[in-house]
């Protein structure tokens, strides 16, 4: 026994002598890595604080009731954001209503129904590629497809005198829908993939059809993830300027759209217009516009978190 313990002790001794010198260094490396990670996350937060502070300084001078009730004006003290807010609300409502069914439908098809063959993987690759296409390209596509109602060949789709949807809320919304669809599809697919196969098997095991399995088990389980992806995609769409300028969103609109075929302006366009004016007062107005845009964005993101928690809890029950 004593022999054995003696030999094992020397073993340990010789082993620990191999590592002894590096122990402090390893701890040091661990601390450095911790520091790098912390710095990484602080950069993001610091940037946000600097941005918020910068905007706060000029942004609240014009933050008043009439900023929300007035239309644009050449006089900064009475200029308001209402046309832009209403335009953005209209557009985003239609984007949400079209992108959700199409995006989730495509994701369900690809994950649950499609055979895993070359065609499917080709479609899959192209959806991922589309997510990386610059937004201005979608603007050009939207101009052709929705504003003019043509596919590039053959005659335009016309009802009477008017072809396509013209430069309307509808054209803007459908263009933005195309823009965010790849993101919605990929996010929904990830959410659907994360539903354990055992749940599907159990469902089939008790005799459920594929439709029953998908509608009452897979989709509810995947919903928190889908909603998160959806709202993050909408947050991207709300700040897009290039594609809707391309399809002809206007700059001076002193009324709110009443139907989807009315002309419109949007928050980022109004901000851009104010920033590019010579008078400093308009720059402050632009800052106020950015504050409103940021608040809208943060509200949407908060909604995403709340929905995720709430839906997550429900499907766990």
């Amino acid at each position: 026994m004593s022999d054995l313990s003696g030999s094992s002790r020397t073993d340990i001794k010789s082993q620990s002598s191999m590592f002894k010198t590096s122990l402090a260094l390893r701890h040091f490396r661990g601390r450095v890595f911790y520091g790098v990670c912390l710095a990484g996350s602080l950069v993001g937060i610091l940037l946000l604080i600097v941005l918020m502070n910068d905007i706060r300084q000029d942004g609240f001078e014009y933050f008043s009731r009439h900023f929300f009730t007035n239309y644009p004006s050449r006089k900064p003290e009475i200029a308001g954001f209402r046309g832009a807010i209403m335009g953005t609300l209209w557009v985003m409502t239609i984007v949400a209503a079209t992108a959700f069914p199409i995006g989730v439908g495509a994701a369900l098809y690809l994950e649950e129904y499609a055979k895993k063959n070359r065609l499917t993987s080709l479609i899959q690759t192209n959806i991922s590629n589309l997510a990386g296409v610059p937004s201005i390209v979608f603007g050009i596509l939207g101009l052709q497809l929705f504003v003019r109602g043509t596919i590039g060949y053959g005659p335009a789709i016309c009802i009477g005198e008017s072809c396509g949807f013209g430069r309307s809320v509808m054209s803007g919304a459908l263009t933005l829908t195309l823009l965010i669809l790849p993101v919605v599809i990929v996010a929904s697919q990830e959410a659907i993939k994360s539903v354990p196969p055992s749940i599907r098997e159990a469902s089939y095991g008790v005799g459920a059809t594929r439709w029953q399995t998908v509608s009452s088990h897979v989709l509810p389980q995947a919903m928190p993830g889908i909603m998160t992806g959806m709202i993050l995609a909408l947050s991207r769409a709300i700040g897009e300027t290039a594609p809707i300028i391309m399809i002809g969103a206007l700059t001076f609109v002193a009324f709110s759209p009443e139907t989807p075929l009315d002309p419109f302006t949007a928050m980022p366009i109004q901000v851009l217009n104010w920033v590019s004016r010579p008078q400093a007062e308009f720059h402050d107005l632009a800052a106020t516009g950015i504050v409103v845009l940021l608040i809208t964005l943060l509200t949407m993101n908060t909604l995403a978190v709340v929905l995720r928690i709430k839906l997550g809890r429900e499907s766990a029950r």
Partner: peptide, 24 residues
């Protein structure tokens, strides 16, 4: 644009049922 916008603003106030839109 700034001139047209100013004219459109006043015109719209005087004629609330018209819909003047100005693009750039």
């Amino acid at each position: 644009y700034p001139v047209t916008e100013a004219v459109a603003e006043e015109f719209q106030i005087a004629n609330p049922d018209t819909r003047v839109t100005v693009g750039v």
